[in-house]
Amino acid sequence: MTRIYMNRWFSTAYHYINMIRDNPDGESFEFYGTHPNPQHMSLMASDHAETEPDLTGRAYAEFCAEFCKRHEIDLFIPRLHMEEIARHASLFDAIGTKLLVCRDLDLLDAMVEKDKFYEMLQGRDLVTIPDYEVVTTAEAFKSAYEKLTARGHKVCFKPTKSEGGMGFRIINDEIDPLEELYGYVTLSTTFERAHEAFSAVERFEDIMVMELLEGTEYSIDCLATAEGELITAVPRRKSEGRIYLLEENQELLELSRRIANTLRIPYAFNIQVRYNHGVPKLLEINPRMSGGLYITCLSSVNLPYLAVRAALGMPITPPEPKFGITASYIEQAVQINQD
């Protein structure tokens, strides 16, 4: 019985645990989870769950290492503070716990902070980078906005260090205030509103002001060996609403191979791109299982389980994904108390 620990994860970890447990090889796993919220969905599929303390830095890594030692964990799959886990990997090596994490600290730190990552990729001919500037003052924000619009771009902005859509806004000066009140909540704001908000402080945390990519968006879920050799990649095209298409896009499969061959990101990672004027441009690369990976697994490839096999040093037969699959998802009620 292999014991796996997952610290504070997204709620979709519920799916990943069940996919790993329901593997085609009949391998047995026991799952341990921690989260500040003892009723979080990421814990509902675990066999054992504990409340996670509010710690950062080495103190957090030490908590995780102590947890792994106490429960004799074979494999730790971190999400929260994965940089700190990788930075203090020796704590886990000393107790025999394997880590499903990128150990290249320079690469990992860069992927977490988007501006550093864009700088790292400049001139490497791997993927096209959107036009952007990083700003920390309202004056610099105004200047970046004017430069980008002068180049013919629509503009958006996002914190350099964030996950998913947190902090993402599109600048749209044609917003009708009344329609906005009556309509759905949107990600749009006007330049005036954004500039006014940024002007309220002397300096703010790094914001990336960049060209708005208006074409089709893809999330490419990738699987690699511990050495970063690409095993498989599945492009997932975002359509209207909750509709996705698992698409055999040769341009994006080749892009994935270039990135994997150069950066050598191990295990499971996710490349997000969006087209603009026919060119796929990089949004970000996440060095972990993506939030929508359970949709990609409809390709008949159990990516979470194969990532576990890779981390444990077990052999993997390269899978053949099924493409041309249209998919969506629905909410499902799950009872979380046993009374």
Score class of each variant (00 low, 15 high):
6 M>I: 11
6 M>S: 09
8 R>S: 09
14 Y>Q: 04
15 H>C: 07
17 I>P: 00
20 I>P: 04
22 D>C: 10
25 D>C: 13
31 F>L: 00
31 F>K: 02
33 G>F: 01
35 H>L: 00
36 P>G: 07
37 N>K: 02
39 Q>I: 14
42 S>V: 00
44 M>F: 12
48 H>N: 08
51 T>W: 00
54 D>K: 08
54 D>S: 07
54 D>F: 12
58 R>E: 07
59 A>V: 03
59 A>Q: 11
60 Y>S: 00
60 Y>W: 03
62 E>Q: 08
68 C>P: 01
71 H>F: 12
71 H>L: 04
72 E>D: 10
81 H>Q: 06
84 E>N: 11
85 I>M: 07
85 I>V: 14
86 A>E: 05
87 R>M: 10
87 R>F: 08
89 A>W: 07
90 S>W: 15
92 F>N: 09
92 F>V: 07
92 F>T: 09
94 A>D: 14
94 A>N: 13
103 R>H: 10
103 R>S: 05
105 L>K: 09
110 A>P: 05
111 M>R: 04
112 V>M: 12
117 F>Y: 07
118 Y>E: 02
120 M>H: 09
126 L>S: 02
140 A>R: 15
140 A>V: 15
140 A>G: 07
144 A>S: 15
146 E>P: 13
148 L>T: 15
154 K>V: 13
156 C>A: 08
156 C>Y: 08
159 P>M: 05
166 M>D: 14
169 R>I: 14
177 P>C: 10
179 E>T: 04
180 E>S: 06
180 E>W: 02
183 G>C: 05
184 Y>H: 14
185 V>D: 11
186 T>F: 08
190 T>R: 02
192 E>H: 09
197 A>F: 15
199 S>A: 11
199 S>R: 06
200 A>E: 14
200 A>Y: 14
201 V>K: 14
203 R>W: 06
204 F>Y: 09
206 D>G: 04
206 D>Q: 04
209 V>F: 06
210 M>I: 05
210 M>D: 05
213 L>T: 06
216 T>H: 12
217 E>P: 09
223 L>R: 01
225 T>H: 00
229 E>T: 11
230 L>I: 10
232 T>Q: 10
236 R>D: 03
242 R>S: 02
245 L>H: 06
247 E>K: 09
253 L>E: 03
254 E>Q: 12
254 E>N: 09
254 E>P: 01
255 L>M: 10
255 L>E: 03
258 R>S: 05
261 N>K: 01
263 L>H: 03
266 P>G: 11
268 A>G: 05
271 I>G: 14
271 I>M: 15
271 I>E: 08
272 Q>Y: 02
274 R>C: 08
279 V>Y: 02
281 K>D: 03
283 L>D: 07
284 E>A: 10
286 N>E: 12
288 R>K: 12
290 S>D: 10
292 G>Y: 05
293 L>G: 11
295 I>W: 09
297 C>G: 13
298 L>M: 12
299 S>I: 11
301 V>T: 03
304 P>W: 01
305 Y>F: 02
311 A>V: 04
314 M>E: 15
317 T>D: 14
319 P>A: 00
325 I>L: 04
327 A>M: 01
330 I>M: 15
334 V>G: 04
335 Q>A: 15
